[in-house]
Design a protein around this nucleic acid. Structure first.
Lengths: 336, 336
DNA sequence: TTGAAAGCGTTACCAC
DNA sequence: GTGGTAACGCTTTCAA
């Protein structure tokens, strides 16, 4: 076996070495047509000897499909998005698709730029995980490439989109707190320009109202979906001398920060203050105390994105099957 | 502006519409040669009108470079690996490289399969983040594609590799515990087949020995680098009625699990038991108490991987500059 | 069953 | 400066 200097073998070389035409090799490789037993054996042998691997680039160019799905995430290191990522990957890898992942960092311009990059690389479709692009931007893109968008509501010829009912999730969370006897419930919000954050806030307000509990503006403090925001928020709450027995944090990260702020003042959870979060990140199972939170079925979100994408790409019909948000009761809430 | 049914415009169409040859358009696009002012303006206009975007696939095929770096990670949702991932991305994106990420799940066969996939897609180089492949496997791959491997020690023509001094990091951690007066220090190990885990265990043993502290086998319990392993390990430790004042966990995840196990028994940290972890995941800043741990400069690991890769790919010479492991003292250790 | 050849969208060499 | 054209590695008619 002589190797041409690590230079990659091409289908043509295989054909030549096997004394057949490139077409025949191609047909053998793809099972596109019957090839005589004898030839097929020589081809097999030559491929082995030359260690030939098809060039997917050339294939893609020819066939007009890269078998690649572009994913626009918002952060490469977000436990939230990455959970969905593995769902997507699991759903599509059996069909031979790979993921080309780019991050938009919650910045509309950067997001658009990344999608542009994805399209330039000729991904077969792009999955968009929330973000700040406008619907019309997404719609525009969808004229160039099939899109499935999560956490957005945009309708069009080649866009599929879906979201989770954040409002209802928030209602459940606050409902639970009320059931447990809490009346003075503080809320740490998420970014004001974030739709999910607004829905969660609305769920909080409405649920309180439904129970004839006054919505005290002083109990609503801003966070940023990060731990640091949660920490600051609780500090602010405490500094303003508000009375409250529970905190509804807009997401788990916020809850972690809030919990630390309480710890610093030796305020016990849940004995003194109860906390409920939102997302149910994996780590929420291991905080002390384990966090009561609203579970987002992110993995399933991912598999559904993957399936919907395959559907648009002409594979078997996607059967959507989306678990709803559900409250996971752990140990950060006390009945009072 | 008429749009041909969302079908993508090609360079040839631009050429035709502008009344010039494809070569000229290409030259204009790449600045490969001067093109007359007049033509350049028509070309610009036509590109605008037709909304032409170059097909990177065709470019790649022609030029023999996809401007893509394959990354073999072990888990898409590991805070540890993903921190390095953003480092890699930051280091290479300015040069126009994108990342094609695949996960090997710590399984040698799957890892090899993924690298094979990466190569089939003609990535320009592959970055390998630890894993279980054999050195010779990696060496083999490196004959087909430039490789930079982190957490491995494999030398070759086209492989660059580097690791962090886990042994020394562990020594520092245990040294600190001893300085704080601890003598009965339990250790929760990582997977026995994991090199880093073994190095950390060795650091623990040697440091104890250096201080003439007996290494009690009963204080060394197995973990798995996951929270659940840490939890189980502490349960086992407690059940066996060992006396100890501190725990050295093989990584932060393990420490989280251990901390929860303690919490369940109302054993306080650090008042009753001290804990130190390893990795310094972002979340370790927000555990209660915040975790004292050995910081791995993962982001910098990533940027270095990226730079080394660019170096191998013929860009500017990489200047390695790797921060060492360092102990981050927070609040999970008490002086006794 | 098989081969010749066109073509996917680029780039680059060779003339002019 | 610019155009013609071969070539990158593959797939797929069209004939035979």
């Amino acid at each position: 076996m002589k190797n041409d200097e690590s230079s990659t073998t091409t289908l043509n070389q295989v054909a030549q070495a096997a004394g057949v035409s490139p077409a025949t090799v191609s047909r053998f490789l793809n099972g596109t047509a019957k090839v005589a037993d004898e030839k097929r054996r020589t081809i097999e042998r030559v491929i082995e000897e030359l260690n030939y691997k098809p060039n997917r680039l050339a294939q893609s160019l020819k066939m007009g499909s890269t078998r690649t799905i572009g994913v626009l995430t918002q952060s490469l290191e977000s436990g939230y998005f990455n959970r969905a990522m593995v769902g997507i990957e699991d759903a599509v890898k059996a069909s031979g698709y790979a993921l080309l992942i780019m991050s938009g960092h919650w910045h509309a311009d950067e997001e658009a730029e990344r999608v542009e990059l994805l399209i330039a690389r000729r991904v077969d479709g792009v999955a968009i995980l929330t973000g700040n692009m406008s619907d019309s931007q997404i719609l525009d893109f969808s004229r160039r490439v099939p899109i499935v968008a999560f956490g957005r509501k945009v309708a069009g010829e080649r866009v599929l989109s879906f979201g989770l009912d954040n409002y209802r999730g928030a209602c459940e969370a606050v409902e639970f707190l009320v059931e447990q006897g809490h009346r003075r419930i503080a809320m740490i919000t998420g970014p004001a320009d974030h739709e999910d954050a607004r829905a969660r806030l609305a769920g909080y307000c409405d649920t309180l109202a439904r129970h004839k509990i006054e919505v005290d503006k002083g109990l609503i403090v801003p966070g940023d979906f990060q731990e640091s925001g949660g920490l600051l928020a609780v500090n602010q709450l405490l500094a303003s001398n508000q009375r409250f027995t529970a905190i509804f944090a807009s997401n788990d990260l916020t809850a972690y920060g809030a919990r630390l702020a309480l710890y610093r003042r030796s305020i016990r959870v849940p004995d003194d203050i109860s906390i409920v979060g939102f997302d149910d990140l994996h780590s929420s199972m291991y905080t002390t105390p384990p966090l009561t939170t609203v579970r987002q079925p992110l993995y399933e979100v991912g598999t559904n994105i993957g399936r919907m994408m395959l559907g648009m790409l002409g594979h078997e019909q996607p059967e959507m099957d989306m678990p709803a948000l559900s409250l996971i009761v752990r140990e950060s809430v006390r009945r009072i």
